[in-house]
């Protein structure tokens, strides 16, 4: 078990609810992943339509997720300003009945890179309003330190840009954050493409991984969800077991005592 904000969880995987081929596959993949935290968003209601069609979210989608009985982590995806992000977070708190918010304030359209300045400002405002802020941030150590000073207990630096599947582009920076902020819950959010990427994050001592596209857009999302479940377990156990130090000098693993004479000079 591990602690995420005020919850005790078994799984270290946080999973998204978007981009699945169908609601049924979404439900099965989320269940197969073992995840206990699902991310959701808010979008405009199509006024005049019947209750939101399943593929467009809305009432039926929300019912389906509620039936899974998991922790809900709403996001502020698509927000580009402090004002938009704060208002969206306030609306999400009312709709989803949680003070958790995955805070996204996008600064660049090409790589969807978070705007660090707006993110910090929005974080301060939302913490003052009682939110548990999960900031989606870059792997900049100083930004992470400032977010912690603002009151964050959880940080979610990117592995690489959203949806790219490139994995951990800057392991040095991510390791540095882990070493310098030992008491903070750290989750790699975004850019994960393979189960081995998730394992790598946990081997570094990260507490969890948040992903969506890697599972939802896999050829077989349910099987990929299971693969991530195993990868996270392996990564965490590898971290807890204490890895050997990397070195340049080769050292034989087979004992040299008793080597036959024809190997001796």
């Amino acid at each position: 078990m591990w602690q995420l904000a005020d919850k005790q969880l078994s799984s270290r995987l946080l999973i998204g609810s978007a981009l699945y081929p169908s609601p049924d596959i979404m439900q099965k993949a989320i269940t197969a992943s073992g995840s206990e935290v699902v991310t959701v968003s808010l979008r405009r209601q199509n006024i005049g339509s019947a209750k939101g069609a399943m593929n467009d979210g809305g009432h039926d989608f929300w019912q389906l997720l509620q039936n899974l009985n998991l922790n809900i982590l709403p996001n502020t995806a698509g927000c580009h300003s402090v004002k938009e992000a704060v208002t969206t977070a306030q609306m999400a708190r009312e709709v989803f009945g949680t003070n958790w918010i995955k805070l996204e304030v996008i600064g660049d359209e090409y790589n969807l890179q978070p705007d660090p300045f707006a993110l910090l400002e929005a974080t301060k405002e939302l913490i003052s309003q009682g939110f548990e802020v999960f900031p989606y941030c870059t792997d900049d150590l100083v930004l992470c330190q400032k977010l912690v000073e603002a009151g964050c207990k959880i940080l979610m630096p990117w592995g690489s840009p959203i949806g790219t599947g490139k994995g951990l582009l800057n392991p040095y920076a991510l390791k540095n954050i882990r070493e310098r902020l030992p008491g903070i819950t750290l989750i790699v959010d975004a850019g994960i493409g393979l189960p081995s990427h998730a394992a790598q994050a946990l081997e570094m001592g990260y507490d969890g991984v948040l992903l969506n596209t890697a599972v939802a857009q896999a050829a077989n999302p349910i099987k990929m969800a299971e693969a991530f479940k195993h990868a996270l377990l392996a990564g965490r156990e590898g971290f807890e077991a204490g890895a050997i130090k990397e070195r340049n000098l080769a050292k034989p693993s087979t004992p040299t005592i008793g080597t036959p004479f024809w190997h001796q000079s």
Binding site: R44, G52, N75, K83, T87
Partner: peptide
């Protein structure tokens, strides 16, 4: 662009030119 809590629906009047956003749960990553 200001959040209106449910408790204020009754006593918030609408004016000509107001911009109202109604948001619902949606899939998200």
């Amino acid at each position: 662009e200001e959040f209106i809590p449910k408790s204020s629906y009754d006593n918030t009047s609408l004016q000509d030119g107001d911009r109202v956003e109604v948001l619902i749960p949606m899939q998200g990553g």
